[in-house]
Design a protein around this nucleic acid. Structure first.
Lengths: 348, 348
DNA sequence: CTGAAAGCGCTTACAG
DNA sequence: CTGAAAGCGCTTACAG
């Protein structure tokens, strides 16, 4: 910039004004500055600019579960689009469902002075952000609400979505409906289980704890789900499955396939899968709307950076039932089912 | 930081030294600084630090096709992991196969003074980065090589992968093998077509231009591929398809499904698909390794930021054939196929 | 409308 | 080992 000023024979502030498109510069000078900038191939250093200007960096941080997973990346894309419309760049990182890593990532982004932070939480204690929040950090939680901290949040309607899934299975004639989900200490998992219970009780069906598996976790949730599905099918006789998370759905499908039960046992999964419509049968799901969650979260964030100081709010994004075949299977004839189960038992 | 210095009754440089873990500070002073920092809940401003320190920002930029697509996001994740090990943060953005947008994104990241840039190019003219490169910008291209510019690149072995796909189909007995791909002006598309031709000629099969469709493009490539597949099948009688890109593979599968030909017409796709193993038949693919591409690209980038000034190099990452069923279908009995084709023609 | 001076929050020689 | 001074590349009052 100094070189540009020298070449255009003007002062630094004048160059600055031209670069920022301020109209209070004589056209002649502005032209001189512009041609000098072009000649020198000058590009302003946004980093330096932001140091002085309003203290804003025009960057936001995004802590995802994993940039490579479809739900996260759809959310990421929506955030990118909203941010780009404001010329704000986004740092994204993967917390890997690891509370410690979530914390490191979030604090690293804070140290880089992002104007705001969107976090898809892994941890169940966000009080480590209380100081930053007090110091003015704008903070929005997505997919799951914050815990031990008050802040804006955008979440799916987990209870209602799960309820709808189970009611859909009940409407197809199922009574013995298994639940496969993540540990209940995770808020979304707990909500989905609540929806399951609600649908059963509304329909006068008693909850059978033997049909419930809520402790699926670990580095390979899909595999845990596959095992759990095999074991449920071999001795507890559900005619339908409600799988409360996408990797769990995948594990369950694998198990059903291996057992040859995929056209006999009904399945509704929470969260959509890529290519779900091309499987046989197509996988009926309760689709979340990660793009809507991301867009809304980012809009809320910008409202805050724009100065909105109203109390924190939680937005709920509706889910949508997409029937594709697997959820419309009716309870099979007992004889055939019985045969299939014997096979299942043999191969466990 | 000033407050910390005041509270600890030391000078600014001393605080700076402690924050940077320099060992040349008396333990007593260091302790005082640390407790002052804790008391004031001080977090260093990385932005300011980077302005002075070596001119580095400890950030890199990543221009992807679309953060939400599986290939891009797997590559992104690998880059993140390599960058994180160096405490470098990454800005990622989506170029959407749009040359203008690629350019805007890349230049925006340059203005933010990233230490390096990894770009998955959409455009076929990267000369707009020549000035930056001359000014010291570290630049690595991934998935596709740069054009009109010399720089490091990491790409899949497209020719060899395509050749392997087609040889695999030939080995299963196919002679009439259709090619469906993106426009040849895209380097990777051209390479895959070259591999197709090479396999045919090696096997003494003459290229039939009527079986070749290389102009699949637009906002909905999958749909274009679906149409193209229908039309190829209805009147040009291939017994196998080689689909040279993932969305094209998806379109082709949809068409085969609709026509009831999915178990009769063989298919090998370039690039893997999520859940490809759960489809019926499983989809045989030439898998790329986006994680390896991303990791290698990021390592090359850091070699450059570390001062390596050797001539630009191009790294080639091998592909891998994954047989899952669709590519192992042998040419069906003519009679049945003939019937199926009549159906196809009727429904087009 | 334009420029000389001060400052954003740090780090980097340079004395001591 | 520690601190006073200068500076990174900009922007922001403040004069004129």
């Amino acid at each position: 910039m100094r070189d540009v000023a020298a070449l255009a024979r003007v002062s630094l502030p004048t160059v600055s004004r031209v670069m920022n498109g301020e109209s209070t510069v004589a056209p002649e000078l502005a032209a001189r500055v512009r041609s000098a900038a072009t000649a020198l191939d000058y590009r302003p250093n946004l980093t330096a600019r932001n140091l002085r200007k309003t203290g804003r960096t025009r960057t936001i941080g995004l802590v995802l579960e994993n940039v490579a997973n479809p739900f996260s990346s759809a959310l990421h894309r929506a955030v990118e689009d909203v941010a780009r419309s404001r010329r704000v760049a986004v740092f994204a990182g993967s917390g890997d469902e690891n509370p410690e890593r979530e914390r490191e990532l979030a604090l690293e982004l804070v140290a880089r002075r992002v104007d705001g932070l969107i976090v898809v939480p892994a941890s169940d204690d966000h009080s480590y952000l209380a100081n930053e929040q007090r110091a003015g950090l704008n903070l929005v939680f997505a997919d799951r609400p914050p815990q031990l901290l008050r802040a804006d949040a955008v979440v799916s309607d987990n209870v209602r979505g799960a309820r709808e899934a189970v009611l859909h299975l009940i409407a197809a004639g199922h009574i013995r409906i298994a639940f496969l989900g993540n540990p209940r200490r995770i808020k979304t998992a707990a909500d989905r289980f609540a929806g399951y219970k609600q649908a059963l009780s509304e329909s006068g069906i008693e909850l059978d704890e033997k049909l419930v598996q809520t402790e699926l976790r670990g580095t390979n949730v899909a595999e845990a789900a596959e095992q759990a599905t095999r074991s449920l099918l071999s001795d507890r006789g559900p005619t339908a499955l409600f799988t409360a998370q996408n990797l769990i759905t995948i594990g369950a499908i694998r198990a059903l396939r291996d057992l040859g039960l995929h056209e006999r046992i009904a399945l509704v999964g929470f969260d959509d899968l890529p290519l779900a419509d091309l499987l046989q049968p197509g996988v009926t799901v309760i689709a979340q709307d990660p793009a809507a969650i991301g867009a809304k979260a980012c809009e809320l964030l910008f409202q805050r950076t724009d100065g909105d100081t109203s109390p924190p709010q939680t937005h709920t994004i509706p889910t949508r039932l997409i029937p594709r075949g697997s959820g419309e299977i009716t309870p099979g004839e007992p004889a055939t089912l019985e045969r299939a189960r014997r096979r299942a038992r043999a191969s466990t």
